[in-house]
Structures are given as structure tokens and as C-alpha cells.
Simulated scan of single mutants.
Amino acid sequence: MRGRPRLRWPGDARVAFWIAPNVEHYEWQPPVNPNRTPYPRTTPDVLNYSWRDYTHRVGFRRIVEEMAKRDIRGSVSLSVSVCDHFPDEVRQMCDLGWELFSHGLYNTRYFYGMSLEDQRAVIRASQEAIGRFGQRLDGWLTPAITPSLETQRLLAEAGLRYTLDYFHDDQPMPLDVGPDHRFVTVPYSIEMNDIPLAHWNNMAVDEMLTTLKAQFDRLYAEGAENGRVMCFAIHPFVLGQPHRIDAFAEFLDHVKSHDQVWYPTAREIAAHYEATHYDTMTDWLGQLHGDRA
């Protein structure tokens, strides 16, 4: 971060705050991937399948209501098969002004070992599915974060504008995918993410709330000098549970109590960065690498 050109957000906001609801679909008996099993138990895994189905039955509604009360749009990490299985949910998200980006076809189909042509086919299918709802596909998060070394180049070649597959920074970055494309990484989060918080780290609800507030407060303070991004990645079958939803609402109220916050979609973050900062940062990185040569 030392020495970087200053990143300015619209309205001179300190933090670009965005929420990524993961609206996913899990197959009953997914195809076998030799590198990873999607369920912890033998399929059909009734326990874990039904837990994830809570998203569409109950959890999604709670998340939508709390965000709408505070006029915060979502940028949806969408298993695009949801467009076929739950089209009413997708229409509701579009009516609310939420962005749809692709999280693959299903969250049970990984890119581990997938051929380049098969990856291209998934990208095309994602574009077509989201296009049926009147949106352009600009962003991408590989299912279970399983991209190959070539995935980002394929995305750029297909006309996408940003990726969320990297967790390396608190600001967007230009991503070198070759001389013919401009491509941006937008900060997603594996730390401020309800599954790691609640299930990997076994945090109680009050611990999650304290952690989220601490993350935001630190980024807000640092953002006075150089703009920052905070993403909160959520899953309605986790955060939409009755005992967690009030903490989510309280955290949103905490963020809303601060004046210098921008509430964009991920697409808007990428577009603003590409238009105002991409070239400046590329030049600075080139000089930095030149100094090290």
C-alpha cells in the first residue's frame, strides 16, 4: 500500500461497501470431480442438501428485507442454474436493482481439471442465463474458488470486466490478462464471509458482529488517506437463520451511521476503477517493477 496513487471514490467516500449474497444451487447427485467432493457425506446427502435449500425457502427473503429497508443493493454471486430453478427470485433481485454475476452453473461443479473449452462453455451459458433477465454478465467468482491459471484470460476474452477470485488486497487492481484486454480484480472476502465466520471459526453471533464492525471501522479510518473496499459475502442459508438475522441488521445500521460510504455494486466498483484509476495504477506498477529490475 505504501506509495500508491490515491484511490478516490465518488463523493470522496472513504469506503466502497458492497454485499455479495451467494444465491446458490446444489445438485442432488452432482457429477464426480476427482479433486473434491461437494458434500461431506455420501450422496445423496440429505442433511447438507436440505440445509442449503433453506436459502430459497426462507433465508433469501430475510436477507432481501433487511437490505431493502436500508436501500442497499446486492451483487449476487449466482449459481446461474437458479435462473431456471427459481426464476422468481432472480426477477425480484433484478427489480431491486441488484447486479447478477456468475458463480458458475451449480456450486457443485468445480473448475478443477476442467478443459479450456468446457470453461468457455460455462462462461457462455452464464452469459445466456443472466442475459435472459436483461443483464450483461460483467463479473465472475469461480465455484468454490477453483479457477485454473487460464480462467481469468478466458473471462476477459469473453468480454467480462472483473473477477472476484483473488483475496490479496483492500483495493481493486489491474489484472494482466494480455495486451488486448483491460481486466480488474475487485476485493471479495474469505474473511468477512458468514460461512468461515460461523462454521469454520465457530463464532457466536456477537463475535461475528464485533468482527464485522472492527473490519469496517479500520477500513473507514484508513480510507481517509486512500480509498478502501469492504465486501461482506453472505449465504442466506447461514446468515438468514433466525438467530443471526438481527446481527446482520445491526451491522448494516452501523455502516449506515457513517457518512463517507459509497454503496455500489461490484460492477460499479470495477467500472469506476477502470475509468479513473486503472491507467494510473498500471503506470505506477510499471515504475515499481522497473525500480526492482
Rank of each mutant, 00 (worst) to 15 (best):
D84S: 12
E268V: 01
P30K: 04
A204I: 00
S75R: 00
P242W: 04
Q29N: 12
D84P: 04
Y188E: 00
W28D: 07
L105N: 11
A214T: 09
F251L: 06
A247P: 04
A68T: 14
I19V: 14
S189T: 11
D118Q: 15
I130C: 12
V177H: 01
F237T: 09
H235I: 06
E225C: 07
I269Q: 03
R132S: 10
T280H: 07
L209G: 02
R14L: 00
Y112D: 13
V177R: 01
W140D: 07
T276I: 02
G134D: 12
D180T: 08
M192F: 11
N22L: 02
I63S: 10
T282P: 08
T43V: 15
A125D: 14
A20W: 00
R120L: 08
R292P: 00
F248Q: 10
M1N: 12
P264N: 06
A293K: 12
D88Q: 14
I130D: 11
F251R: 05
V15P: 01
I245F: 06
L209F: 01
V80D: 15
A266N: 05
H168I: 13
L239T: 15
G59N: 05
R52T: 10
N201R: 14
E89L: 14
A198Y: 15
G223K: 05
V122Q: 13
R132E: 14
G3W: 01
Q135N: 09
D165V: 06
D253W: 07
